[in-house]
């Protein structure tokens, strides 16, 4: 193993993703130090979701290398947890909250093995942490948006990962849930874990995060919030719209359907 104090949690080099000849991500370099909360920000179609999916090997990449804790991602996959966008699954699927949370253990459980008492206990602990244990036996179709998000977080918690990737965990949740989630993220950071979050709200960046990466197909800037989250960088990432964005209270318009479509289709709307 490499020296844990010097290696980054995540190190991305030259990552390029193309979708029918259009670059969605171009030559992105990114290094995330351990124990930080990092926000990935950028306009719709900037490739935020695609960046996460490319790091996790969920979309084909044209070029690039991803290291997690100093080793290639595929070797250290067990260190990584994932919270996909809430809207990416069918919440009418016939299953319970507890069952969904236990899915976080499927990766380490191995073939032919069913989740048992140990997995159930872990799931209950995680549900407790997100304040959802009373809902353990609830049908997932009966959950509100905020509750769905908490269930996804609990599922990621049972992965017991060192590095978490979360795709818009604050999307469409109420203020109370948002506070609960950010408390949870801070707790993870206190345990020296790293959390990478696709984030939309410009207002809360300085309050919630240590590091920020501004993205618009290319990496515009990346570093500690106080150095990186400047008006000039924002203008570079968001184009001329940034002042408008800063004045408006929830800073970003809700993502269009194209944006959700792997964050690929929205590329055409970028006005550099």
């Amino acid at each position: 193993m490499t020296d844990p104090t010097t290696t980054c949690a995540v190190e991305v080099t030259d990552l390029t993703v193309a979708y029918r000849e259009r670059p969605v991500l171009w030559d992105v370099d990114l290094s995330v130090p351990r124990g930080k909360l990092l926000a990935i920000m950028g306009p719709n179609g900037a490739g935020k979701t695609t960046l996460i999916k490319a790091i996790l090997g969920l979309v084909p990449t044209a070029a690039g290398r991803v290291l997690v804790h100093g080793e290639p991602y595929t070797a250290n996959r067990h260190l990584v947890g994932y919270v996909p966008q809430r809207g990416s699954v069918d919440w009418d699927f016939p299953t319970t909250v507890l069952d969904v949370v236990m899915m976080g253990r499927y990766g380490t459980l191995g073939w032919l093995r069913r989740p048992g008492r140990r997995e159930r206990d872990q799931a209950h602990v995680a549900l407790e942490k997100v304040g959802m244990d009373v809902f353990a036996d609830r049908q997932i179709s009966e959950l509100s948006g905020g509750q769905q998000q908490r269930v996804f977080l609990a599922r990621a918690l049972v992965q017991e990962a060192q590095v978490y990737f979360m795709d818009e965990p604050f999307q469409g949740v109420d203020a109370r849930t948002e506070r609960a989630i950010i408390e949870l993220l801070k707790e993870l950071r206190a345990q020296d874990r790293t959390v990478v979050v696709v984030h939309h709200d410009l207002q809360t960046v300085t309050e919630y995060f240590d590091w920020v990466t501004l993205l618009n197909v290319r990496r515009i800037a990346s570093g500690p919030v106080e150095e990186t989250f400047t008006e000039e960088n924002l203008r570079l990432a968001y184009g001329g719209r940034v002042e408008f964005l800063q004045r408006q209270a929830p800073a970003d318009p809700p993502p269009t359907p194209e944006d959700r479509d792997h964050g690929l289709g929205g590329y055409g709307k970028i006005r550099p």
Binding site: L56, Y82, P84
Partner: peptide, 22 residues
């Protein structure tokens, strides 16, 4: 029956299954 949990996860959330390395 043998691949029950894998098929369940694939049907519910294929992206998460991929992230788990399935």
């Amino acid at each position: 029956a043998g691949l029950w949990k894998e098929f369940k996860l694939l049907s519910f959330d294929a992206a998460f299954a991929g992230a788990l390395g399935l």
